[in-house]
């Protein structure tokens, strides 16, 4: 007889949410996502849409960097590929927007696999630099392939329509981007219930013993790049539809750093981390903007400070989290939960 882990729980071990409480919380979360648009104003709906786009992209990057250990600074450029794919299709083909979005994912996947090829030879810092190079090349293409991208003038995109509804405002767009985000998060979480996700983690943790277990390193590294860039492509496609216009400056290297920061702050190698990180990093600039508004009457030219201050705050957050909370907000969240779990009985 063994104590503590009875056989009945085996099936539960395999499920996405282990306990009934977790299912209840998931239900409450879904319900609040449904109710939210009826209570929030346009600005807050706008923020949630933006957060969702960032969550999708951050989740992709977290699969690649957090779970597979392949540092990438190309996520923003990959989003650009998705955005331009949507833009081009929107302007040149009359395909429905769902097709365009999937095409954005597909095209970006291919680009991501090519950009991931250096990972077969190099890792760590060298791989990071190789991905920076890839994003500069993509940037160059965005600017110079004028027949497709219209260069620095940028390109406009019509809002998507579905069943006659036009998703031209955050209050409608919400119903498009939120469900897709939820689905993509579930897909990502599922990945780590299977051999594919385990192989990713194995590659991150010890690539020697991964190969002794028969894991084909090149195949899985490229697979991870493929999935990460598929997510980036979808996020980029949404970005294009959401803002209605894009240009090469929409996807700077700084945005890739933003996503890297998001997963570090949120928690590398956890799905929850991608969510928390994206929320936190999207809201921080808003908070700063609010701070600037408050300071405006007292400080000369406060708004001019906004941009440099924002960059500095991002930098400080990355360094701070790396130093003091390397497992990110997800870990803080776990601690809070444990606290309340034991709460009345804690000493």
């Amino acid at each position: 007889m063994r104590i503590g882990s009875p056989k009945e729980t085996y099936a539960a071990d395999e499920s996405l949410f282990r306990t009934r409480t977790q299912w209840v919380w998931f239900g409450i979360l879904l319900l609040s996502l449904v109710l939210y648009p009826f209570m929030a104003n346009l600005y807050w709906l706008y923020l949630v849409c933006l957060i969702c786009i960032n969550i999708i992209s951050a989740t992709g990057l977290n699969i690649l960097t957090g779970y597979t250990g392949q540092v990438s600074l190309g996520q923003a450029a990959f989003m650009g590929v998705g955005a331009y794919t949507v833009a081009w299709l929107d302007n040149n083909a009359s395909t429905p927007f769902i097709m365009n979005l999937l095409a954005a994912g597909a095209v970006t996947t291919v680009v991501g696999i090519i950009a991931g090829l250096p990972s077969l030879r190099v890792k760590g810092l060298y791989l990071a630099i190789a991905t920076i190079a890839a994003s500069f090349i993509l940037q160059f293409i965005f600017i110079n392939w004028e027949s497709v991208t219209r260069g620095t003038r940028g390109i406009n995109i019509e809002p998507p329509t579905l069943f006659g509804v036009e998703f031209d405002n955050p209050d409608t767009f919400y119903w498009l981007v939120v469900p897709v985000t939820v689905v993509m998060l579930i897909l990502a979480a599922n990945l780590f219930r299977t051999r594919v996700g385990r192989a990713f983690i194995a590659i991150r943790d010890r690539d020697i013993s991964a190969s002794v277990l028969g894991i084909n390193l090149p195949l899985y590294k490229l697979m991870s790049f493929a999935i990460a860039s598929f997510y980036a492509g979808i996020a980029g496609g949404f970005y294009a539809y959401f803002y209605g216009s894009i240009n090469p400056e929409s996807f700077p290297l700084l945005l890739s750093i933003f996503f890297l920061a998001a997963i570090i702050v949120g928690g590398l190698g956890t799905i929850l981390g991608s969510i928390l990180g994206a929320v936190f990093m999207t809201l921080t600039p808003e908070l700063l903007r609010y701070g600037v508004d408050v300071l405006e009457p007292f400080v000369h030219d406060a708004s001019a400070l906004l941009s440099p201050v924002r960059t500095m705050v991002f930098g400080l957050l990355i360094v701070g989290f790396l130093l003091f909370e390397p497992h990110g907000l997800a870990e803080i969240w776990r601690r809070i939960r444990r606290f309340f779990h034991l709460w009345p009985f804690r000493n």
Partner: peptide, 30 residues
């Protein structure tokens, strides 16, 4: 050379990697 962050079960399941067939697509839809 175990994967220290993973559970015992996940480590051992990794051992069965070569006997399994699931690809990324069916993994995500689970």
């Amino acid at each position: 050379a175990l994967f220290r962050g993973m559970t015992v079960m996940d480590n051992v399941k990794l051992g069965a990697h070569v006997r399994m067939r699931t690809g990324p697509m069916s993994a995500m839809f689970y």
